[in-house]
């Protein structure tokens, strides 16, 4: 479930390397492993969640008992009630899991009631926009590195745009494109594209500039042309920067697609599910859509991350 971050936390190199294998030391090693810690924290979150569900739904449940004229109920009944409401304030984890099971596994993926269907709608727009945005970002970065007027004139604006909530443009873009009868995946992809475009441009400009002066001087001693310098030095040197910004960009793309779906929900998608859930007070459905969106994000980042690992190992950047 979690991307492994091996080595990052092994601050004590001498620990955990002792060959002795007594019972206590084994317990200690398991306790000190990252997986255990993550599991324990995750478990704690689930327990807190259940507690939160009981507390937050308590009033609703009391009202429900009152409406049903049920005066005497045990606390077990009460708790069971809070954890299995139709429209709880905070659904219990098992309710979300049940909803996910129903909408992901039970229902035919081509149905509009299937989360898989909506997930695919969102992912398509995300991936299309992400690809366009990244390619344009890389191309612009190459131009910026080679044209001083773009570097000095345009780059400051692109950097400044990172401080601006450009996602606020999303509803407008959807509506304007709609006037040209451009609907469906394209408006969403456009939003995804411009959201991924900026981080990729900024990251790639940094990456293409990352070769140090000595390495550039070396290319000059070979009297290499600009394209040769670009392909032999700048582009290979920029790969780590590219992947770092691609990870940011893919997450931004997904957010863009979801927000676009919130604006115009006819075509479905996870954002449309969120909006529908919030209209009809279907909290379980909202949470299920949220979890689905989180899974999509994990998958997307996982793909970019493993691409990163493969490429950087091939190129000798491997850690």
């Amino acid at each position: 479930m979690l991307p492994p971050r091996a080595g990052e936390l092994s601050a004590h190199p001498t620990e955990g390397a002792r060959p002795a294998m007594t019972m206590t030391s084994m317990v200690r090693r398991v306790w000190q492993s990252q997986a255990t810690a993550v599991l324990v924290i995750a478990l704690a979150i689930v327990i807190l969640w259940y507690g939160g569900s009981i507390v937050m739904n308590a009033q609703l449940q009391r009202d429900a008992f009152e409406n049903a004229d049920q005066k005497d109920y045990t606390s077990a009944q009460f708790i069971a009630g809070t954890l299995n409401m139709e429209r709880p304030k905070l659904p219990a984890p098992h309710q979300i899991v049940r909803e996910l099971d129903k909408t992901v596994l039970q229902i035919d993926p081509s149905s509009k009631r299937s989360l898989v269907y909506h997930g695919i709608v969102t992912l398509q727009a995300t991936l299309l926009g992400f690809s366009i945005g990244s390619i344009l970002g890389v191309l612009l970065a190459v131009l910026v590195v080679h044209a001083a007027s773009l570097d000095k004139g345009l780059m400051p604006w692109i950097v400044a745009s990172q401080a601006i909530p450009i996602i606020a443009l999303a509803p407008m873009i959807v509506v304007i494109l709609n006037q040209f009868e451009v609907t469906g995946i394209v408006p969403k992809a456009v939003i995804s594209a411009y959201l991924s475009f900026f981080p990729v441009t900024v990251g790639m400009v940094k990456g293409l500039r990352s070769p140090d002066p000595l390495q550039l001087d070396l290319m000059r001693t070979y009297s290499a042309s600009r394209p040769e310098t670009l392909f032999k030095l700048r582009l290979p040197a920029s790969v780590p920067f590219l992947f770092a910004s691609l990870k940011v960009a893919v997450a931004a793309s997904l957010v863009g697609a979801i927000v676009a779906e919130v604006t115009k929900s006819e075509d479905g998608g996870l954002g449309a599910r969120l909006l529908a859930g919030s209209y009809y007070g279907q909290t379980v459905q909202i949470w299920a859509a949220l979890i689905a969106a989180a899974i999509c994000a994990c998958v997307l980042i996982g793909i970019v991350g493993s691409l990163d690992r493969v490429v950087s190992r091939r190129m000798g950047y491997a850690r």
């Binding site: 991307p3 971050r5 810690a37 993550v38 324990v40 924290i41």
Partner: peptide, 8 residues
């Protein structure tokens, strides 16, 4: 806490 919370 660090080992558990940081990945999350």
């Amino acid at each position: 806490l660090q080992r558990g919370l940081l990945p999350i």
